[in-house]
Design a protein around this nucleic acid. Sequence first.
DNA 1: CCATAAACAGGATGATTGTCCTGTTTTTAA
DNA 2: TTAAAAACAGGACAATCATCCTGTTTATGG
Lengths: 200, 200
Amino acid sequence: MTKDLEKPKRTNNPQAMRARLLDVAAILFQQRGYNATSIHDVVKAAATTGGALHHHFATKKALGLAVIAERVAVEVEKTAIRPVATAASIAQGVATFLDNVAGTLEHNQAVSGCPLNNLALELSLADSDFREAVNTVFDRWREALVLRLKADRQTLNTSDANDLATLVVASYSGAMAMAKASQSAEPLRASARQLALVLA
Amino acid sequence: MTKDLEKPKRTNNPQAMRARLLDVAAILFQQRGYNATSIHDVVKAAATTGGALHHHFATKKALGLAVIAERVAVEVEKTAIRPVATAASIAQGVATFLDNVAGTLEHNQAVSGCPLNNLALELSLADSDFREAVNTVFDRWREALVLRLKADRQTLNTSDANDLATLVVASYSGAMAMAKASQSAEPLRASARQLALVLA
DNA sequence: CCATAAACAGGATGATTGTCCTGTTTTTAA
DNA sequence: TTAAAAACAGGACAATCATCCTGTTTATGG
């Protein structure tokens, strides 16, 4: 008589649940933006419930801050900082980084933009916690470039190294904005060619 | 007996009303972003009614597109394109433009970012009409730089001029993003110093 | 002067938002 | 084994959102 349909057992796995929520939120925030993504969107995409999300992240802001600190920062570290740190030269590292990014854009069908840049512009003015979180990532990136620049050429003073590192980060961020608006990797390619001359 | 309070006469002035709505919306969209600004916010700030707004702009999207075409594009024309077109050299023009922007940021208390960049990142992926509107402005700006570059140095070929113009636009856009995140004009100043070397 | 349309007023509406609350299940600690 | 906490389920909630609607006022063309 009783329904034999066993409802799938619930397996508590807080770390995996938290990680999945962060993964899904990071993707949605990048594709649609923070404000255009609802809590319910995240719940649906993560195939869970509001209770689970609320348990791990009390507010949407907490989720956003965690995405920046635990996903966006990590991606910047992996795709932008590490290649520059391990390459034969700063010029080589930046070239590799930009080529990888452009290649990824060309491989995908849509240009979602740089997740750091996206959140930076949308949230910096709205909330100082968001602003500081984003700024921390920008700073770490620029500092890594400065370190590599000074290691490569001892004649370069700190001020010039800082300026040059800022130009690299700014060029990439801006080129990514243009790439998003044109849905093309060409602005990335063009900036890469010019930066190669500057860093040569 | 009758209240003598004359309610202020209503003076129909559609052009002024439309202009005021656009002005207010442009400011709010830049300060808070498109999605974070409600129609009601615009109505309140413009000191008018929902009926008036709906009469001039049937949807929020229509308002947004008009802001881009009639306010953002005009500001880019005035602050970025014209100085470069009228300066003694491309290097001089870009330097003047960046110095003006940085000066404005330092004079104000908050860095709201570049209105074009703000809307580009927030709306490009969400809606193709927005994307095209934003891309048109980016294109016009880059084209103006290419024209000036080729006029300055006849030896420069089209491809290189395009790359260089892209770098200039990208550097500015990205530097503005960093400026917004750090609430400082320094990224603008640093990029300006480096661009001066590139364009020299 | 009159008819018609444009310009605006102001509220109704249904959908969506983020947050919170009360249960139930699972794990942990003792 | 048992009490308590953690992990989740699922819906309630008021607030806010963009849009649309019905009126009223003002301008315009004949």
